[in-house]
Design a protein around this nucleic acid. Sequence first.
DNA 1: TTGAAAGCGCTACCAA
DNA 2: TTGGTAGCGCTTTCAA
Lengths: 344, 344
Amino acid sequence: MVQIPNTPPSASPAPRSVPTSADVARLAGVSRATVSYVLNNTSAVRISEPTRRRVHEAARELGYVPHAAARSLRAGHSRMVLMPAPAIPIGPLYGRFINELQWALGRLDYTVVQYGTVAVQGDEAARAWAELRPVAVIVPGAGLGPQGVTVLKRSGARAVVTLGPASVEGAHALLMDQAAVGHAAAAHLHSRGRRRIGVVVPEEAGLETFSRPRLDGARDALRGTGAAITELPLAYTEEAAARLAARWGDLGLDAVFTYNDEYAMLLMSALQDTGVRIPEDTAVIGADDLMLGRLLRPRLSTVHIELPSGRDLAALVDRAVRNPGAAPETHRVLGASVVPREST
Amino acid sequence: MVQIPNTPPSASPAPRSVPTSADVARLAGVSRATVSYVLNNTSAVRISEPTRRRVHEAARELGYVPHAAARSLRAGHSRMVLMPAPAIPIGPLYGRFINELQWALGRLDYTVVQYGTVAVQGDEAARAWAELRPVAVIVPGAGLGPQGVTVLKRSGARAVVTLGPASVEGAHALLMDQAAVGHAAAAHLHSRGRRRIGVVVPEEAGLETFSRPRLDGARDALRGTGAAITELPLAYTEEAAARLAARWGDLGLDAVFTYNDEYAMLLMSALQDTGVRIPEDTAVIGADDLMLGRLLRPRLSTVHIELPSGRDLAALVDRAVRNPGAAPETHRVLGASVVPREST
DNA sequence: TTGAAAGCGCTACCAA
DNA sequence: TTGGTAGCGCTTTCAA
C-alpha cells in the first residue's frame, strides 16, 4: 500500500478525517457526480471502463464508505424498518419470529433496525422513533396509541404495524389475542372434567400484557359452566412456588393453568415435592409448547401458539409501504391449540 | 382540536408532506435559526418569551419532529451505538445483558441500535455498519476481523468493542472465554472421581462458537489426568436424545457435560427413561445456571456464568468514545464457577 | 434579540 | 461520457 501524505507532517497523529465522495473524486481525478454514478452503478449513465476502474481504485485506496444519512437525506426516504426492542426478554418463540422477520425483510431490501427504547414511554417513544424517519415501524406490545401513530405517519412512515392485543386507529394490526390461549387451556381442563381451576398469574413486571388476557380468556371459557377460577399470583422463584404448593390442599383445586410452560415446570416441581399427584390430584397445563414440556414427567399438556410467519408480516409491511393509502389491515394471527399430553 | 385546512381542498387526499423546521419558522413568523434556538434550548442565545411560545405552538400545531439524519449530518457526529443483532436467539442470560447495556448506555445519552445483520458476513457487514456512521460499535461473537475494525474506524467510529472469544487488532475486547466453562465442568467431574467423560456438542448451526471452546476447555482440563473425553454430537430433539441414550451402555461413560442446562435436561430425561441412574451411573453437569436446573430431579449441577455488567461495558464504551486515542483495553469478563447440586 | 447564509455528504438534473 | 450544481433538513457562525 502506498502512503499518501494528505496532511502536512505533524508530531501529533492528526486523526485522518473520514473520506467523502469528494475525496474519492479528487484522487481519481473525476467529478463527484462521476463517483456517484460509478459506485451506484447508475444504469442511466454510461461511464467508460478506465474511469470506472480509477474510481473504484480510489475508493478502495481511501477506504471510502458512503454516508447512509446523507444519502437518505438527499433521496428523501430510506428503507429502514424500525422496531422497538422489547423491554423484557421474551421467550424463544418470539426470538425466532423476529429473526425470521428480519430475514424476510432483508430479502425485500429493507434494513431492520431494533431501537433500544428503554425508559421511554408511549408517545414520547413515538417521537424518538419518528426522528429516524423510518419507512415503516413495527411495534410489538401495547405501548403505542393513536397519537403515536399520527406522529409516525406525519413524519413520513408509510406503514405502522402493531403486533399485540388490540388494534390502534390508523395502524395495521396483527392481533395476537392472548385471551385465546387462556380460553383454550381452560376449555381443555373443563372437558377433562375439572371444575376448580387455578390460573397462575406471574408477578414479574412487564408480563401483565400477556398474563392478564390469558387469565381473562380462561374466565371467559368457563363463564356459565359452574366451574370456578382461582387467581394464583406467583413469582418465578422456587421459594414462591414452594409456598404456593404448601397451601395447595387448602386451595382445593383440581387443575391449574400455569400461564406458560416455564411456570408450569416451576409449579409442577414444587407440587411433586409436596406429594401432589399429577394429573390425578391436579391437572396441569402450560402454554407456548416449549421443548421442556415434552421432557417433563408426566409430559406437560400445553397450548401451542402459532405466531404469524415472519415472511407474512414482511409482505404486509412491503404492501403497506408500496400503497400507503390503503385501509389498515387487521389480521388475527395468534393460533392457539391444545396439545394434550400426560399432565391433564 | 381545530381543523386547519392547509392544503387546497381536493378529491385525492394529497399526502401532506412532512413538516420541516422551515415550515415551523414560516408558521411562527420567525427564521429557521430562531426555531432551532428555541427547540434546542440553545443557552448561548436568548430568545424572548413570546417568540419561544410562538415557535413551540407552531411546532406542536404541525406535529414537527426533527430529522435525526439531517441533524447528525450537520453536526458531523451522532451518539448512535450500533450493535449487530445476533443471528441466533441466545438464551435469557444474554438477553438480560443486552437490556442492561441498553439501559446503561441510554443513561449516558447514547442511542443503542441493533442492526439486523442477517445474511451479511464479516467485512461485508462491517461496511454496512460503517454506512450508518455510529460513534461506537459493539460486536458480539467472532465475526469481525482486523479489516472490519479498520473500516469502522476509518468511517468515524470512535470505539469498537468486541464481545467474544478472541480479541481483534485495534478493537477493545471483552473476552468471553467459553473454554473456561468447559474447563470448570470437566475439572468438577474429575474431582468427583469420574474418568470417562462425555461432552455433548450441539448439532444446531451457529452454536459452534460456543460449543467448540467449551469442548476444548474440557479437554484441556483433563489433559494428562488419564481421564478420557468422548465427543457426543446431539441435535436438540427428543429422538436424537433417545438414540444417544439407547447406546449409553456401549459408550461406557460415567459422566457427561452437556454443553448447557437445556441440553442437560434433554439428555437427562432420555437417560432416565432408559433406566440410567443419575448420578450413580452417570453424573451430569450443565452450564448457564438456568432456573430449570434447580427444578430438575435430581437437581442439576451446572456452571454458573458471570457476564460482564451492562453498566461496565457502557462505561468502557463511553471512555473509549471520549478518548479514542487510548490503547485498546482487553478484559476477561466471563466468570465460570461450578454450582454443585445433586446430579454430580 | 433575530435573520441571512454557509455547508455537512450525497444524488440527479441539465449542459457541455 | 463527464462536470457543474442545486438542494435534502439542520445547526451555527456572523451581521444587523
